[in-house]
Design a protein around this nucleic acid. Sequence first.
DNA 1: GTGTTGACGCCTA
DNA 2: ATAGGCGCCAACA
Length: 120
Amino acid sequence: MTPRSTRTPLDPFTARVLSVVRRIPPGRVATYGDVAELAGRPRAARAVGNIMGAGGQPDVPAHRVIAAGGALGGYGGNESLKRALLMAEGVTFRGARVHPFADLRWAPARTGRRRATPAR
DNA sequence: GTGTTGACGCCTA
DNA sequence: ATAGGCGCCAACA
């Protein structure tokens, strides 16, 4: 089980991805591309998918990470479960896509990012 | 070090 | 709307 969590200490990017996903609130979703961008690698959507599939941790709501355009994306072969989990949180679907995607799509609150080093 | 795989994304037909 | 192709990045053999 979790062949990776017990091996590598987690690279910065991977840790960042998990951190981002953890912040996605219930009833909201984020695309693999969104997570990748928030993690610092806008083109690493595929890598994010791999990281999700790698298992991650129980406190990481991977089911809230979907594909672009509101598509469901994968879930270890249990897409129906992923969809059920989202619906249970209030996410509505329109066919195979979340709807309204624009409103359900989550974006981090930018409560005014303060720099650690208060520009002297 | 290289090669393959994969819960992706976007473009073109 | 469906199918195929290319690019992207990280994990693993």
